[in-house]
Design a protein around this nucleic acid. Structure first.
Length: 588
RNA sequence: GCGCUCGUAGCUCAAUGGAUAGAGUACUGGCCUCCGAAGCCAGGGGUUGUGGGUUCGAUCCCCGCCGAGCGCGCCA
């Protein structure tokens, strides 16, 4: 039995080390059985040690042997290790490993040595997906962002940061729907409000944008251009179609605007677009949500990409004409029904531009493209995938992550939200009420496929109970104790950790050691919420330890060791919170 | 009607197919002459909607049923 006398250093990886020991044991116990991967999980219960392996159970069937017997043989063949304090067989055949105190605490060194890079995944240079794009929010720029967009923003931003930290090269993108009917409706809405300012009042359509920001934009246009866009109300009304269908009347008004304003329609249109886009962008930046690319839908038309996308589908033989419109045969790819790509009137549908957009994403060379969509778009996935496949692209490079709805509750009542009516709570209002940090963290306290009930009164009145403060408080406490110590934090790296002896210290070290695994798992699962839950647990382990043990004790060796542990904890809190876009206050 | 998603403690939510299903909150009782009490410790609380199946092992995978949300446009 060759004694493995691996030095416990800051580069020590307990999981890798134990896996090596198990592999060696397996080679003699079950030579033929090459398990692809030896999983070492962290038991939920401390009494089950630091790591547990279920290899014995996995081998039971192939070896036709009782798992406990296999476990016993494996343990017997296990090479000795200076990192191991105890190996036990438990339950149905688990092998539980308990590390020595030195091995348990080695993570403190690793954290201090790596600083803000602790937990960072390896840069991916291989053939596996490396360059990623995350597209999120992508709300129509037709009004202020609401709390639902806020969830998508917080989720997408945290996911993108997480993926980048895990070692991917990430591009954050916002798709601007600047080409469709909704933008025309917004331009019309502003123009009608503008006419009101000149005593040319028209009945404001119930399905136009009602929000106060529309009046503000009308006023801006008046101040910039005076009465240049004024036309008599009768002239506008004369263009209206004789129908009770409110959508048809709205389209009639848009046509009237385009006819009467001529070239100037484009000005009104671009004014409201740039105004709303700037507002949206500022809102998101204040929320700590940054985008690398703002991709214009209209540019897809201007450069002929939409037409080319449809041509590609035609060449694939999955386009047919019916009732004058061009249909994509998405049922051939598992969709419920076929979809129109070009209408009878020659205008491409939103679906057509979206196919062009995704083909463009692929052409830009991303290994994986991740779309973060509202859950109401789920029915849209099969047709996009289908079109990509039909166009000869590898649809598996597209991953769609759906984020469920946010419902707002005020006074115990569900708040009805309608973008058109302008009757909704904006992301700005929410941020002003509960603060950016609480917002970002609260959004992450639910996995994305869980509907979120946002109780405004609770978020407002009990904001002190918000878990974000619990985590930030741990950070502030550490800052406080370090300040009172008044030493040089840099000299704590490499401190002798042997004075760390009690269970709460070991538990805190184990939690710190979990961080790199957690990053990789959360990134793989597109699950930034796991990071928020981890930080709550980490803060809990810290508070528990801090209340039980004193850091600034007289014994210099103990003091140094505990300061090092506190400093390492602060580092991981910083690394985690910054990924979630939450600040790390020195005091609160 | 068809499709997608969800159903876990009184409430809000966790849990790479693993061991006695965990936190927070609420409730009860303790802890500051001592590094920040926005904190800590202890306690009661569960047939994981329901009925089957696969598995050594199921909250997790598969099927049925019940309930909730969303989607089913030549809108975006």
């Amino acid at each position: 039995m060759a004694a493995s006398s691996e030095k416990i250093s800051s580069g020590f990886d307990a999981r890798q080390h134990l896996a090596g020991l198990l592999r060696a044991a397996l080679a003699s116990v079950a030579p033929g059985q090459g398990l692809a991967e030896i999983l070492l999980e962290r038991p939920k219960q401390a009494s089950h040690g630091d790591f547990a392996s279920n290899v014995a159970m996995q081998l039971a069937r192939e070896l036709k042997t009782n798992p406990r017997q296999i476990a016993e043989r494996l343990v017997r063949e296990l090479p000795a290790s200076s990192a191991l304090a105890k190996v036990e067989i438990a339950g149905a055949g688990f092998i539980n490993f308990t590390l020595t105190a030195a091995a348990r605490c080695a993570v403190v060194d690793a954290v201090l040595a790596n600083g803000h890079d602790f937990g960072r995944g390896p840069v991916r240079n291989g053939r596996a997906a490396r360059r990623l794009q995350v597209e999120f929010v992508s709300a129509n720029p037709t009004g202020p962002l609401h709390v639902g967009h806020g969830r998508g923003a917080a989720f997408g931003a945290s996911l993108a940061s997480l993926l980048a930290f895990a070692g991917y090269e990430v591009t954050r993108e916002y798709y601007v729907n600047d080409a469709g009917r909704q933008m025309d409706i917004l331009a019309l809405s502003a123009w009608l409000r503008y006419l009101e300012l000149f005593d040319e009042p028209l009945p404001f359509p119930p399905n136009a944008y009602q929000g106060g920001y529309v009046r503000e934009m009308a006023e801006q246009i008046r101040q910039a251009h005076g009465d240049r866009y004024v036309h008599p109300a009768e002239a506008v009304l004369a263009c209206l179609p004789d129908t009770d269908d409110i959508e048809a009347r709205l389209d009639g008004l848009i046509l009237a605007g385009k006819d009467l304003l001529g070239e100037d329609w484009a000005y009104v249109h671009s004014h409201v677009l740039s105004e709303q886009l700037a507002d949206c962008r500022a809102d998101l930046e204040e929320f700590g949500v940054h985008f690398d690319v703002w991709f214009s839908e209209r540019s897809l038309y201007d450069t002929g990409m939409v037409a080319r996308a449809v041509e590609k589908l035609e060449k694939s033989g999955h386009i047919y004409v019916q009732d004058g419109a061009k249909w994509f045969q998405s049922t051939a790819f598992g969709d419920e029904k076929d979809r129109v790509v070009q209408r009878e009137n020659g205008i491409y549908t939103y679906f057509a531009s979206d196919v062009a957009y995704h083909l463009n994403k692929f052409e830009r060379g991303f290994d994986k493209v991740i779309d973060v969509w509202g859950a109401d778009h789920h029915g849209y996935i099969p047709r996009v995938r289908g079109a990509l496949s039909a166009a000869g692209a590898d649809a598996s490079r597209l991953e769609v992550t759906l984020v469920q709805f946010v419902s707002l509750f005020r006074d115990g009542q569900k708040v009805s939200m309608s973008t058109r009516s302008g009757d909704y709570v904006t992301l700005r209002q929410l941020r002003a009420e509960v603060g950016n940090d609480a917002c970002r963290f609260f959004y992450m306290l639910r996995k994305c496929d869980q509907a979120l009930d946002f109780d405004l009164d609770l978020a407002k009145s009990q904001s002190n109970d918000n878990p974000v403060y619990y985590v930030q408080y741990a950070h502030a406490r550490i800052c406080s104790v370090l300040a009172q110590w008044d030493g040089d934090a840099a000299e704590l790296a490499g401190a002798d950790l042997s004075p760390l002896q009690n269970e709460r210290e070991f538990a805190l070290c184990a939690r710190l050691a979990e961080f790199p695994d957690l990053i990789l798992q959360a990134a793989r699962d597109h699950a930034p919420h796991a990071l928020a839950f981890y930080l709550k647990d980490l803060a809990g382990d810290f508070h528990s330890w801090y209340n039980a043990e004193r850091v600034l004790v007289d014994d210099p060796a103990v003091r140094r060791a505990r300061l090092a542990l506190a400093l390492a904890t602060r580092q991981v809190l910083q690394n985690g919170l910054s990924l979630l876009g939450v600040s790390q206050p020195v005091s609160m």
